[in-house]
Simulated assay, not measured.
Amino acid sequence: MALILVTGASSGLGYATANALAWEGHDVVVHARTPARVAVPTGGGRWAGVATGDLAETSEIPGVARQAAAFGRFDVVIHNAGTMHTPEAATVNTIAPYLLTALLDKPSKLIYLSSSMHRGGSTDLARLADGTASYSDSKLWVTALAMAVASRWEGTAVHAVDPGWVPTRMGGPGATDDLEAGHQTQVWLATHDDITPSTGGYWYHQHAQDPHSAAHDPKFQDRLLQALEERTGVRLD
């Protein structure tokens, strides 16, 4: 069985993902903003561990990484945590996945949550520093981050997932996508190896799609990684 970290696992898609993986017998470490937000898995099981910290606060992200690292090298890390609110969107949706990726030992698999709204994002990375980044911007950037890591880290399978517009607390009651399908691709990617493409995929309901062209642009990837390094003071190896 695999050791798996799921961020933003107190509710919604993160909780559903973590719970499904725990139900399959994997050792799941869950992240939540505070201990009080950690929900127990259904079916009477337990989490392998808990890491807490507010990913909207850049200063707290290294602490989350240290807590998670104490459980050992992860087989899979699922960067699920997200918010639609500006100015937190850039920090939670892009900077936190970048820092956790850089600070944790390289896992066998990395999965980043994107969104169909990433296609409306901007490549103006000045927004990363000045606090004006939109949700769409942050999701374009985290998708490009996933593709950049996929092209740089041999031996780690890296994917981005559009879970659909699902009726979670963030998606709202008017969301039209299937809630159950919203976490199944993440679970499938985490637990299967016979996947094409084996790395660098952008997925929607277990079907590979083409993301925004900037996500695969090496020049934009380089600019993004440089901007993230300058913003955080941490370099991605």
Rank of each mutant, 00 (worst) to 15 (best):
I78S: 01
M84G: 15
N93L: 03
V76C: 14
A81L: 07
R73A: 12
R66K: 14
R73F: 03
A70V: 04
V50R: 01
H79F: 15
L99R: 01
A70L: 10
R119Q: 12
E57Y: 02
A102K: 08
N80L: 04
A69M: 06
T42I: 02
D105N: 05
V50Q: 09
H85L: 12
V92W: 09
G53S: 05
T94L: 08
G53D: 02
E57H: 11
S114V: 06
E60P: 01
V92D: 06
I78V: 15
S108R: 14
H118G: 03
K106A: 05
V50G: 02
T101N: 06
W47M: 02
K106W: 06
A68T: 10
K109T: 14
M117K: 09
F71V: 07
I61D: 08
K106T: 09
A70F: 07
D75C: 11
V76D: 13
G120V: 00
A69Y: 08
A102S: 13
T101H: 08
A90P: 00
G49Q: 05
T91R: 02
V92C: 09
T91Q: 10
A65Y: 03
S116R: 14
G53K: 04
A102W: 09
G82T: 00
R46H: 15
T83I: 13
V50P: 01
I111T: 02
P62K: 11
A51D: 07
W47N: 01
V76L: 12
T83A: 10
R73L: 06
I78P: 01
A48V: 03
T52W: 07
E57I: 09
G45T: 09
G120S: 11
G49A: 05
G44T: 00
T91N: 04
R46Q: 14
A89Y: 01
N93K: 00
R46I: 03
A56V: 00
I95K: 02
G44F: 07
R73M: 04
A81F: 08
L100D: 04
S115C: 06
L103R: 13
N80R: 04
I111W: 09
A68W: 13
E60V: 01
R119S: 13
Y112Q: 03
L103A: 07
T86G: 07
G53Q: 04
D105S: 12
A51H: 09
R119F: 12
F71S: 08
V77E: 13
A90Q: 05
E57W: 03
R46N: 13
V64S: 06
A56M: 05
V76S: 14
L110D: 03
L103C: 08
T94D: 00
Y98E: 07
Y112D: 03
N80K: 05
A56Q: 10
P107V: 10
H85W: 12
G44E: 05
P107N: 13
V76N: 15
T42C: 11
L110V: 07
G82L: 03
G63T: 08
K106V: 07
A51Q: 05
P107I: 09
G53R: 05
L104D: 10
P62R: 07
I61A: 10
H118M: 04
K106F: 02
T58K: 15
H79L: 13
S108V: 11
I95G: 01
G53E: 03
M117D: 10
V64Q: 08
K109A: 09
G45E: 03
G49H: 04
P87D: 04
H85C: 02
E88V: 00
H85I: 12
W47H: 05
G63Y: 03
A96T: 08
H79C: 07
S59M: 06
D75V: 11
I95R: 05
